[in-house]
Design a binder for these strands. Structure first.
Lengths: 208, 208
DNA sequence: AGACTTCTCTACCATTTGGTCAGTGGGTGA
DNA sequence: TCACCCACTGACCAAATGGTAGAGAAGTCT
């Protein structure tokens, strides 16, 4: 495999571009021809690397899952051991992701359409992370550092809130909130506040 | 127009079915042939009533907006004058909608993809409602009945939370939350709690 | 050099897609 | 009865779609 200083592989480029396009325009709305066009290659080259379009999608989903996991892992590694601090680091990191690669979160939404077969696959890949989050929350709750609640619901709320930010640009606009950096920061502040009060209600808050 | 006891018009049936299918499987994933097949008619009949597929989509969006407006209007009309009571009635009504016609909220999500031309149209139709909501919130805030905050952000959070419920079934499942009635009630309770604390923080709460 | 592998392309193909056209039949008003 | 309109359909069509087959270029190993 001579990939020394050759820049990104064609396969890599296809994957990257497909992720972006699937995540923004959607899977069904993206033809292989269009994809190839953007990349300056022929459709057959795509089909050489990924034998069907659905195959490409699964590869894209796998990659997205990997990226997401890596991002989160990174956030948690760089955060201190304090419970709330870890939650905050996670949210901040994902907001950064939403700013820098919104298509990744868009893909999550695209793929988690009810009944989608990709949803299952994605879920399977995220399972370790989910379990880790659940265990973390439950431990903190048991130790009295977080308020007692159903960890699954807490995570669902957080997910829905965060993905909504990246994903509901048009709704924001309709509500008079332009997708500027400032508004993103504001949203992040709100979500952190929400999580803070959901988790710490009757404890010392670390906010403002 | 003699529509006496003839049951729903063909046009009506097309609209209804298209709304459901677009809202669940998505616009691009739905062919006119498939749509016609479900209805037991020929594709040409659809194109007779709606001259292009995009035309059908706009009609569907218009109808969805109308239904949504009607639902909300109804909730507000049946609610008392007390501020929090009105918010609660609204949320409850939309949750019922999410249960009974999830495809309607699914369509919202489908259509509000960033850059979608339908997003604009939908926004325009929802504008009066949005303004009404904003004015309501601002008035209540000014009167000290609600905590002071940016009304737009409050509405965005509420929207994102509620639509997420109807829409993120697969994510819920991945988190171990099956889409049962009980789980929906639980989610509703949480969202109401969230809104309550966002709006009433330092006031008498009406919750439990 | 020659065989082999890897990658990309040109040339096709069957099917599906959104859409047109020219009807057909049934009802309605003059 | 005749003209007219409405709702609907069968027969097509051009373009686009996902996918196949095979060849050529370039490198690698022997």
């Amino acid at each position: 495999m001579g990939e020394i200083s050759t820049g990104p592989t064609t396969k890599e480029r296809i994957l990257e571009d497909a992720l972006t396009t699937f995540g923004t325009r959607g899977y069904d709305a993206t033809s292989l021809d269009a994809l190839a066009g953007q990349l300056g290659i022929r459709k057959q080259t795509i089909l050489y690397h990924f034998s069907t379009k659905e195959d490409l999608l699964t590869a894209v989903v796998d990659r997205a899952a990997l990226d997401l996991l890596a991002t989160i892992e990174q956030a948690l590694d760089s955060a201190g051991p304090e419970s709330w601090e870890r939650v905050e680091a996670l949210v901040r990191r994902i907001f950064r992701l939403a700013l820098v690669r919104p298509e990744l979160l868009g893909l999550m939404r695209e793929v988690s359409r009810p009944g989608s077969s990709m949803a299952e696959r994605l879920a399977a890949q995220m399972e370790p992370l989910i379990r880790r989050g659940r265990i973390f929350l439950q431990r903190e709750m048991a130790a009295g550092r977080f308020q007692k609640a159903d960890a699954n619901y807490v995570m669902l709320s957080a997910y829905s809130a965060v993905v909504g930010v990246a994903t509901e640009v048009e709704v924001s606009r309709a509500l008079g909130i332009e997708p500027t950096l400032r508004s993103m920061v504001e949203r992040r502040k709100q979500i952190l506040h929400f999580l803070n009060s959901a988790l710490l209600e009757n404890t010392t808050t670390s906010d403002s």
